[in-house]
Design a protein around this nucleic acid. Structure first.
Lengths: 215, 215
DNA sequence: CCTAGATTGTGAAGGATTTCACAAGCCCCA
DNA sequence: TGGGGCTTGTGAAATCCTTCACAATCTAGG
């Protein structure tokens, strides 16, 4: 789980900044759909539960996209944030694990809609191998490395039992995957050039529990 | 999405601290299973990718649980963190939305194992209402408030389409739910005494995309 | 009982992120 | 063309979080 360094620009971008950019993007798309031509940092802040200064600071790391006195051009800012987040292209994604969660994800509309192209699905269970999920057939996880390499998949979604998650993560790293979205509970150890994000249900529930217990 | 204040103790606990406590707990359980009687902040730090000072500082907000020169008693510390996180009891959980994600969650073992008791499941689709999921029958979402109140559910998991998420969140808040785990993409507006955590797949994918695009 | 070795608990320092506050710049209208 | 009203972009201040560093204290062993 590493690193949010920018390539040429020496500055390191904080994770909360990236998270907020993703939020802003969502709002901008709404505003665009609603036909708003320009938007101010204050309006963006309002819907995003933050401050206008925060919005401007976040954007300032990447350039100056607004017009003083006016705000931001909705379409232009949308495009800029898309570019910043690397969403001005599609990414090839493989899903490992075609159980409950894996197959729910594979059929998830929002994936393709947002430029994440599911090109491969893997499972160990021979009963599942060969079946199609949303247009992609399930492959035997034995062939993971070869297929990932051939497809040139860049992102992997890991929806396997926790006992095998680490092993798969290592194999994915070796096969050239540099980004993993992990649904298992234990943190993964991966090479420094691999980014891991965890969707840890247990942890989120425990944070809620803490909040309730300490009201 | 609010607030990590402690009740009597005036100090506010930072979210990263709570997140790490949840991690420590997982490791402690592993260590306990492995038969380790005591554990040092350094060992805990090692598996959790942090520093021993961080571990000790995190714990220090809640008391002093260790023995100088020795470390922490594994079992005792486990119990303490459980108590801190409010995991020394069970919480009643309802799941709203019995689609792909909702039903995957309903059948998720880890839920009950960790003290989160799924007492109700709701859906709009009349074809789903009445069916059982892991021992709990699916109710019509029309009866949400009444049932939530009767069951005294404290936590809700929201796995509904984004268009209706806000509406359901409001209804849940009014029905006495103070914690929501939300799987939809748009942030929810809820009263200040309701804590919301989002598992936002799109956002996590976009953070990965950013990391890849800016390597 | 005393010393060596280990580890905690915690103020204080350091670093990172957010917020403040204001000069600079743009648009509109007279 | 010039003034008023707004909003950006950004150093500087404030706040929040992490790391440092060390006194306090424990165990074990002779």
């Amino acid at each position: 789980m590493k690193d949010f360094t920018s390539p040429i620009s020496v500055k390191r971008i904080a994770e909360p900044t990236v998270r907020r950019l993703s939020l802003y993007l969502r709002f901008l798309e709404d505003f665009e759909k609603a036909g708003r031509a320009t938007i101010s940092s204050g309006e963006l802040a309002h819907v995003g539960h933050t401050t206008s200064a925060q919005v401007r600071k976040d954007l300032s790391f990447f350039g100056s996209f607004g017009k003083r006195g006016l705000g931001y051009d909705t379409g232009a800012l949308t495009a800029q944030i898309r570019r910043i987040l690397g969403l001005d292209r599609t990414w090839k994604v493989v899903i490992v694990g075609a159980g409950k969660i894996g197959s729910a994800l594979a059929q998830h509309r929002g994936f393709r809609e947002r430029g994440f192209d599911v090109v491969g699905i893997f499972d160990v269970d021979p009963h599942r191998v060969g079946y199609m999920l949303d247009g992609v057939s399930i492959s035997d996880v034995k062939g993971l490395e070869a297929i990932v390499r051939r497809l040139e998949a860049e992102i992997a979604v890991l929806a396997v039992p926790p006992e095998v998650a680490q092993g798969i993560a290592t194999r994915l790293s070796k096969a050239g995957v540099h980004a993993i979205l992990d649904f298992s509970t234990e943190p993964l150890k991966v090479p420094a050039d691999v980014t891991v994000r965890s969707m840890n249900l247990a942890m989120e529930m425990e944070i809620l529990s803490f909040a309730l217990a300490n009201r």
